[in-house]
Design a protein around this nucleic acid. Sequence first.
DNA 1: AAGGAACGAGAGCGGTGCTCTTGACAAGGG
DNA 2: CCCTTGTCAAGAGCACCGCTCTCGTTCCTT
Lengths: 238, 238
Amino acid sequence: MPDPESTSAPRTARAIARAELTRQIKDTARSHLAETGAPGLSLRAVARELGMVSSALYRYFPSRDELLTALIIDAYDSVGAAAEAADAAVRRSDGRGRFRATGRAIRSWARANPHEYALVYGSPVPGYAAPEDTIGPATRAPLVLMRLLADASAAGRVTEPDHQPGLPASVRSDLARLAADAGLEIPPPALARGVLAWTALFGAVSFELFGQFVNVIDDTDAWFDHQLDRLTDLIGLQ
Amino acid sequence: MPDPESTSAPRTARAIARAELTRQIKDTARSHLAETGAPGLSLRAVARELGMVSSALYRYFPSRDELLTALIIDAYDSVGAAAEAADAAVRRSDGRGRFRATGRAIRSWARANPHEYALVYGSPVPGYAAPEDTIGPATRAPLVLMRLLADASAAGRVTEPDHQPGLPASVRSDLARLAADAGLEIPPPALARGVLAWTALFGAVSFELFGQFVNVIDDTDAWFDHQLDRLTDLIGLQ
DNA sequence: AAGGAACGAGAGCGGTGCTCTTGACAAGGG
DNA sequence: CCCTTGTCAAGAGCACCGCTCTCGTTCCTT
């Protein structure tokens, strides 16, 4: 159950103070996250910076994991918003431009917020199971991809490759369900290529951020753009 | 400087005992890693299981980070050996089969050793900088890819796409240096497609292991094989 | 105005990585 | 053969961690 003050406007002074302090705790935790990473996030350090005692934090977040969950949700929302904004800035019929803008936005966001990226797309925190609250925000960025795929295939602007290999039945049904869940019409082969490109996109960002490109690719900007073009080709976006 | 007993055979009983204990510590730490993950790896717990006191461990590893480094090197070696074995089991001229076998081997290794995979390909440990000892083992698996690319292009068994887009100059030189460092001859465009496929491969493994495919792809086996085929096509391997 | 809920402070528990000192013991040279 | 030298495990201790509990206080509701 979400905190009531997020849905209704807080009335009492106490509720206002609570909402404000909750925000301050998250902000401080986020800034600590940017410096020390998720494993090094310390409740005591956050409390210290806020001039309060560590036990007082437990009035606002029942555990360190719950605080992490809040940060995860914020991170998913943040990257989702970045993707949506980049996508919305491109003409709707320009599927190619939309995918490239979205890809670039995701990489930029990740480079600007590496620890938040690692928090949601990196190694899972052991012993921590993401609660259901996170799956909604988590789908926000992928939905951008799926919408542009749906738009492009509705307009007939997705070129199918010449010798199309058959999609395994189980994969086809997985992808059909995925599109149906989102209320979108995307032919499974096109969605398959989209998911592959999406996977490669995040693979590239992870490789870059996690140091696998050191001594391999120096000009990561040029490489990413080049790769993004190849992935757009692979999807068949015009 | 590496410990002397790893290069020369230990003579004295003391040196033998030291080598044995070092091995036991690493083994125990690895098994703890598989249960709690890297952030939860505790020197004290390892010492406890070995029936010794925590401070005694510092005779063998100067810090927790050094122990982690040893585990990282072992993990790189382990995945590299798995890739090499899978590659070697396929006829040398069968570039397509070699890439698929290598990809499957990497995924299998990752699924069997998820925490070790996360250790090397997941979020970096904050405040921990990988020392130079790790770069050698780290290149072992990618070298498998590069060797099969070199073999395939030497045999003229890499089909170039019809409308080849130009490679940015900086990327071209990065890739040329990469091949030259390995002492291999791979045309930059082919290597570019190889690195892209490699990136996508690890992106897929990371997505699967880190939970991004939950509620998206159910039949991950079929999906991975399908994707591996598309990546082999993308490289142009015959 | 009164009762109860929410709050911050503090002490404390068991855990962590790491340092330093101490005493036992083995290795090797005189 | 003895004795110096270096290695070793053990223990105490430091500063930190997440978390729990208690205790007054403050605020809100009835």
